[in-house]
Write a protein that binds this DNA or RNA. Structure first.
Length: 577
RNA sequence: GCCGCCUUAGCUCAGCGGUAGAGCAAUGGUUUCGUAAACCAUCGGUCCGGGGUUCGAAUCCCCGAGGCGGCUCCA
């Protein structure tokens, strides 16, 4: 976002706050910054704010714009600023001055009667605002901490011109159509059933077809890269998580253990402990390393009820997991290989809109486990491997896992929310806690380093992303239905059914639309279901042994022989390895 | 979990104190059709659940569940 746009949006937030105070005297104001998408301002209203109020607030804002009320900068002594906001009954502003303002003076901006603690800059007067729209109301904790009171946040957006605002609003509407929850229903890919439980999505036959293709793709790719796949249970003795440290540091996200025959059993929240025990089944020599143990491992995490959403955030999900056990001298190479694998996966799906985020430890939180010096080594190793990859990345202090630094790949969903897709961690801690070791060339024992990595991340979330990425129009290799056969009249149905069998025998996913409908209606249905190919068959085709192929993308239909089409489809149905 | 809004047929939605509606889907029939919706008929509802107010509640109030937006958290 340019500085000018930020100034415009921030100024719009001020005008919104001014309008709110005009309409709802006694409202306490929080903060109101610009964001990548627009702006917001947080308020403590005396009564709850109804959505119907937004147009009224907008109307009042337009009056302020029309009056071209100037923004006036003012430097006042700190004590005077405190007194001013006390007089105005704005306790949150007083709190901010006391906490944040270290200079002897505080900077204020006035817009008419409205006065705000603010560094600026602002547009010269309210007449210089562009086009704006208030969008939604939401709750938000004061200063972002759930320990604090909850304020009411009004989100809006602003642009220099009406045309840009309109384009943005149209874009939002278009994006909402790609929402995987909407497409999941329309294309019959998955459902979340109240009786089964929230956060526990059920894949339908079509959704499962996509999932199986994804699994096939990643398993084969990993096999080529020297991973060994294992299969381990979704549950373990609680003891396992006592040793790993999950019970101590991760219990908030874990389902409660269940007790049977005087033993406690834990639904697993992570796969690493199981994989570690597989690694430990036999002694390892320095020659054996790296050992790469992989599994599509399902984990169970109790996400808070307000956090679950579609396939993006669920309570049972399958991680494209692997744990690489390597010598310290192999760490950088292995980490770089992981980065390359991620890039390869993303290329296969044409995913370009992502960035790397290196999550580090901070000094504020106390959730970190293990020796800070070891952490430092892990963080340095990650940074070094990332630099070597030549890919830009951002650092995020305080975002690491409790056992080590993380490298996440960040993406945005259809409506602009950011999520981690891939996640990877360097871990010196679990090898320590489980006492992992290998025999060195000097016949001494040494501790291996562990790398957790998941290029696809959670299969569910990745699938959600793909649904939105492709807008439901999956490439042939992923499409749940690759071809719909459309007989023109009833008399063609039997022959077409036999034809479809030939495709099914070749592992192609085809359907025959035998409904009592006109061809046009069947084409429309296939089109709405975003099936890549429609094969229309009537008298002409049956006589000539051909198919009339219509593509989902439109364009001219082509007449091809059955064998030609079979060959073409088999080619397009190949995994993108 | 927290703040706010929403929940009516399989789906999308109307109705908002006075006998539950539409379109699509489904089912039956007629039509047998050449590239994005043929026609007719029929079926389909604990109006999310529970409690209350009222002569009367889908509609008003309270509690709960689920969904949505956001916050917190996160793959």
């Amino acid at each position: 976002m340019s500085d000018d746009l930020e100034t415009l949006r921030h100024s719009t937030a001020h005008v919104m706050a001014a309008a709110v105070l005009d309409l709802f005297p006694g409202t306490v104001i929080g903060i109101g910054p610009a964001t990548d998408e627009g702006f917001y301002y947080d308020f403590a209203f005396q009564d709850r704010l109804l959505p119907e109020a937004l147009p009224k607030i907008e109307a009042r804002m337009h009056e302020i714009v029309k009056a071209a009320t100037p923004f006036v900068k003012q430097e006042v002594p700190r004590t005077e600023a405190v007194a001013l906001f006390e007089r105005l009954h704005q306790p949150l502003k007083v709190e901010l001055i006391e906490e944040k303002v270290t200079e002897p003076t505080a900077r204020l901006y006035r817009t008419g009667d409205f006065v705000d603690l603010c560094l600026g800059p602002h547009v010269p007067n309210a007449g210089k605002l562009g086009a704006f729209r208030l969008l939604s109301i939401a709750g938000a904790y004061w200063k972002g901490s759930e320990k604090n009171q909850q304020l009411t946040r009004i989100y809006g957006t602003a642009f220099p011109t009406q045309a840009e605002l309109d384009a943005h609003l149209t874009m939002l509407e278009e994006a909402a159509k790609r929402d995987h929850r909407k497409l999941g229903k329309e294309l019959d890919l998955f459902l979340v059933d109240e009786m089964v439980g929230r956060g526990l999505p059920l894949l339908t036959p079509k959704g499962a077809a996509i999932r199986h293709q994804l699994e096939e793709f990643i398993l084969r790719l990993e096999r080529r890269q020297g991973y060994e796949h294992v299969k381990t249970p979704d549950i373990a003795r609680l003891e396992l998580y006592k040793v790993s440290g999950h019970l101590e540091r991760y219990h908030d996200s874990m389902y409660a253990p269940s007790e049977m025959e005087d033993e406690e059993w834990q639904l697993r929240p992570m796969n690493c402990p199981h994989h570690i025990r597989v690694f430990q089944r036999k002694p390892s020599s320095f020659r054996d390393l790296p050992v790469r143990i992989a599994e599509l491992g399902t984990v169970y995490r109790y996400e808070k009820s307000g956090e679950v959403s579609g396939l993006i955030r669920v309570r049972a999900f399958t991680i494209n997991d692997a744990h690489i056990f390597c010598r310290p001298d192999q760490l950088n190479v292995e980490f770089e290989r992981v980065i390359q694998l991620i890039l390869q996966v993303y290329r296969a799906f044409g995913i370009k809109d992502f960035y790397f985020r290196l999550s580090l430890r901070d000094e504020v939180s106390n959730k970190w486990m293990g020796d800070p010096a070891i952490w430092q080594r892990a963080q340095d190793a990650a940074r070094e491997a990332l630099r070597a990859s030549g890919h830009p990345f951002v650092e995020a202090p305080g975002e690491a896992a409790f056992y080590g630094p993380k490298l996440d790949v960040q993406i945005k969903d259809a409506i602009g929310r950011e999520f981690s897709l891939s996640t990877n961690q360097i871990d010196f801690l679990l090898p320590e806690r489980f006492g992992l070791e290998y025999v060195t060339s000097e016949q001494t024992m040494a501790r291996p380093v562990m790398l957790h990595r998941a290029p696809i991340g959670a299969m569910e979330r990745f699938m959600a992303y793909l649904i939105e990425h492709y807008g439901g129009a999956f490439p042939v290799w992923l499409a749940p239905v690759q071809v719909v056969f459309i007989p023109i009249a009833d008399r063609h149905l039997e022959a077409v059914t036999k034809l479809a069998e030939r495709f099914r025998d070749r592992d192609l996913r085809v359907e025959v639309d035998g409904k009592a409908e006109r061809m046009q209606a069947k084409i429309r249905n296939a089109q709405l279901q975003k099936v890549p190919y429609m094969a229309v068959v009537g008298d002409k085709e049956l006589e000539g042994g051909t198919l009339n192929i219509r593509r989902r993308e439109g364009g001219d239909q082509v007449s091809v022989t059955v064998d030609q089409f079979l060959a073409q489809l088999e080619r397009e149905a190949q995994l993108p390895l």
